[in-house]
């Protein structure tokens, strides 16, 4: 069916309200912030510019300075925190995807009560606000928390994970698990029984079936799960703020500290842009995966 021209414009008009909203309140502010990070302190940036300290500025609209970027990148604290943020993101994403796959395969290949409990458990964190989750996780792994208490009862000195990067990874895995599990379970469930049966009848072992039949077909949902986890983790604030150490910190916390406690909003904005660029990298994988799936099923 070839849509008429009016039909197509009507579609665009219907789709426009959220697009306009996002353009005005996300796209535009990001551009303004970008200008601020490049030294523009006039116009919309004038309020923030008069309060802030230690800014790199330019005196004409057509000039730019990378002073703020140089300052931020020269700061060993930022270098350290950027590395930690990326490492935490990778660790969290890998753990979440592995866990989600474990649960998904269990649910796919069995429908025992174990499978039902597993899939229900994995979704629980979705029901709990992040603030509470972070705090609960901190107390659970703290010096006087459950893990250490139970270990003390059997005579072991368990490690203290409260206020460490380990706690941050635990918290981020906890909060990201439901979405990833839902995505991967949905993908794995979609693999037709006939295909699995055929492979099994041809003598393929279960691991072999998983690797060559199920995994390729659930690739796109896995990539989506991974991307969302990675992007959410990169800019995470609440979990690392509550459970993490004073140093090293994740950039989401740095961002808030620089803006709120150190009165260095320009550095804060530079960090936001750096996170955005890294997140865009992950986002690119997501778009590619979707495009590939759309292309192979002839929808492009």
């Amino acid at each position: 069916m070839k849509p008429s021209r009016r039909h197509r414009l009507g579609g665009l008009a219907l789709a426009s309200p959220p697009l306009i909203l996002v353009a005005v309140f996300v796209g535009f502010p990001i551009l303004v912030a970008l200008a601020y990070s490049l030294g523009q302190v006039g116009g919309l940036n004038s309020t923030i510019g008069t309060i802030a300290t230690e800014q790199s500025t330019v005196d004409a609209w057509y000039k730019v300075t990378f002073g703020a970027y140089r300052t931020v990148f020269a700061d060993p604290r930022f270098q350290r925190d950027l590395v930690v943020t990326v490492l935490v993101t990778l660790a969290t994403t890998v753990i979440v995807v592995v866990l989600a796959w474990g649960i998904a395969l269990y649910v796919r290949l069995s429908d025992s009560w174990v499978a039902k409990i597993l899939s229900a458990l994995a979704v629980v964190p979705m029901f709990i606000p992040v603030v509470i989750a972070s705090w609960a996780i901190l107390t659970f792994y703290a010096a006087d928390g459950f893990l250490r208490s139970i270990a003390a009862h059997v005579g072991i000195e368990a490690p203290i994970w409260g206020y460490t990067i380990t706690a941050v990874v635990i918290g981020l895995v906890w909060t990201n698990l439901p979405f990833a599990t839902l995505m991967v379970v949905s993908g794995v469930q979609g693999v037709p029984d006939a295909l699995i049966e055929a492979a099994r009848d041809a003598g393929a072992s279960i691991p072999r079936t998983v690797v060559s039949i199920i995994a390729p077909m659930a690739l796109v949902p896995t990539v989506i799960a991974g991307t969302f986890t990675a992007i959410g983790t990169l800019g995470a604030f609440t979990v690392p703020y509550f459970t993490g150490p004073n140093a090293p910190k994740m950039l989401g916390v740095d961002l808030a500290d620089y803006f709120q406690s150190f009165n260095l909003p320009q550095s804060s904005v530079v960090m936001a842009i750096v996170i955005f660029i890294v997140a865009s990298g992950f986002g690119g994988v997501y778009v590619w995966a979707n495009y590939r799936s759309a292309a192979s099923s002839g929808r492009v």
């Binding site: 912030a33 604030f237 803006f259 904005v269 936001a272």
Partner: peptide
């Protein structure tokens, strides 16, 4: 995909940027 991009910019950073506006 543009709508999705709203997720990629860190929330805290967005609020800082929104403040001026």
């Amino acid at each position: 995909i543009g709508l999705f991009a709203t997720n990629a910019f860190p929330r805290m950073g967005l609020f800082v940027a929104l403040a001026s506006l």
